[in-house]
């Protein structure tokens, strides 16, 4: 038993497919979440973001109009966003590593490939509650830190702060 008060969680589910929204909402309700808001487009989600200020956003990539990636970028960088740190769990049919990288680079917090599973959603929710990622601001990126491995895995010089001989390396790994 994790002991989380899911009844206190406010979630915004953004997906243009009503069946997928219903599936995610059903799972969240079974966890005990009461405050669930739905949006069928990123434009509506942006409006709801201001009205309800969700704790977590569950977001589809492929939306009609603004895509999930564009929405994520807007949440992270638009000065009008009420909470640029809000965790975003991207739920998508894309599974290739290139898509995972694109989502990461846009500022997505967690990536969850379809098909939807109960454990998949709970694992990602637990991750954003227990292990929020630090944020990074560079000239080209603002969002959750894109490094996912433990520090212990890398034993070289500190790439973000190393002097000029490591600068190129630093830029490649920025964020």
């Amino acid at each position: 038993m994790s002991g989380y008060r899911f009844d206190r969680l406010k979630v915004l589910v953004v997906d243009d497919n009503q069946h997928m929204r219903k599936l995610v909402v059903t799972i969240l309700q079974a966890f005990g979440t009461i405050q669930i808001f739905e949006a069928e487009s990123a434009e509506l989600a942006w409006s709801l973001l201001h009205d309800v200020n969700p704790d977590v956003i569950v977001l589809d990539w492929m939306l009609t109009g603004m895509t999930g990636l564009e929405f994520t970028n807007m949440v992270r960088t638009n000065a009008g966003c009420p909470n640029p740190f809000v965790p975003i769990i991207m739920l998508t049919g894309y599974t290739q590593i290139d898509h995972v990288r694109q989502a990461r680079d846009a500022g997505v917090t967690e990536f969850l490939a379809k098909p939807v599973s109960v454990k998949g959603i709970l694992t990602r929710l637990t991750a954003v509650i227990e292990h929020p990622r630090p944020f990074v601001r560079t000239k080209v990126y603002y969002g959750p830190c894109r490094r996912r491995r433990d520090k212990e895995e890398y034993r070289g010089p500190e790439r973000r702060t190393a002097p000029q001989d490591n600068a190129q390396h630093s830029m490649a790994a920025a964020g």
Partner: peptide, 25 residues
Amino acid sequence: QQPIELFMPPNILKAKMGGGIGGLD
């Protein structure tokens, strides 16, 4: 050298949700 700012936002969610004791519910 690319200027980089790294910071940890406050974990409001954890405080709001109560303490988990690890593992899936």
